[in-house]
Amino acid sequence: MTLLSAPVEYVPTGRLRISGLPRLARRHPLVVIGGGLLALLIVLALAAPLYAGDPLNMDPFKRLQPPSAEMWFGSDNLGRDVFARTIFGARISLMVGLLSAAGAALGGVLIGVIAGYNRGFDNIVMRVMDGLMSIPTILLAIALISLTGPGIAILIVAITIPQMPSVSRLVRSAVLSVRERPYVEAALCGGARLPKVLWRHILPSTIPSLMVQSAIVCADAILTEAGLSFLGVGVPPEIPSWGNMISSSRLYLAIAPLTVFAPGICLAVTVLAVNLLGDGLRDLFDPRAKRRRR
């Protein structure tokens, strides 16, 4: 875990005037490390067809082979190339994570901000959110997937729906405590229009929590996909995702460790990158948070 021991130094700045990326790296190393890692993973995933080989090709007579020049990470229980599957798996896992986070954040902010501000709306919408949320993600996902059969789209929907209320609640509770603050009251008394107040004063204050939460949703989505695969209702077995690779190979850990470790380490690194990025962005977007580093 070299990533964790990497120097993550905060440099007290303000006077330094370095432009561009080096400056960002100095001031917000987490953004650069997390974001860079994530960007790298995305590029590797997108470029997969150029270098990774065929993730679907099976050879039952070459199952559970050790790593070789031909198959860098060896082969899985159906004789498929673990390296190719791990690289192609990044596409699915990242897609599930990013789309779920984006969906949950968009929906959640919209609902949360309005609910936090308008009490009438609040009561109705938050009860609907309660209803949605009160069904645990995993159970909802299992039920939805048993309705349609496994598929990536339904998986993303099943993960996003129950995450939306949690974002909206977080945003709402932040709005609830912000709206009583003097500067918001002052702005309203000063004749500012409501949408403008929401946009200028309330929304920005929710960004730190939102960033942390979005990172959590993204990471959680990737992990939920793994958990659902463990229960046998994740991504269809043919399509490689880290989750279904780990769970379908878990019996072979002793015989062919890479079948589990390759996707496992990728998954952990990705989740880590997302979390680091979330933390870094929090500092970046929230100038007030930096004052703590007196």
């Binding site: 875990m1 958990g227 998954l267």
Partner: peptide, 15 residues
């Protein structure tokens, strides 16, 4: 602690 929190959050429960 942050490292622990991040790591603890990065590994699937069944693993």
């Amino acid at each position: 602690l942050t490292a622990f929190a991040t790591l603890g959050f990065s590994v699937p429960v069944f693993v």
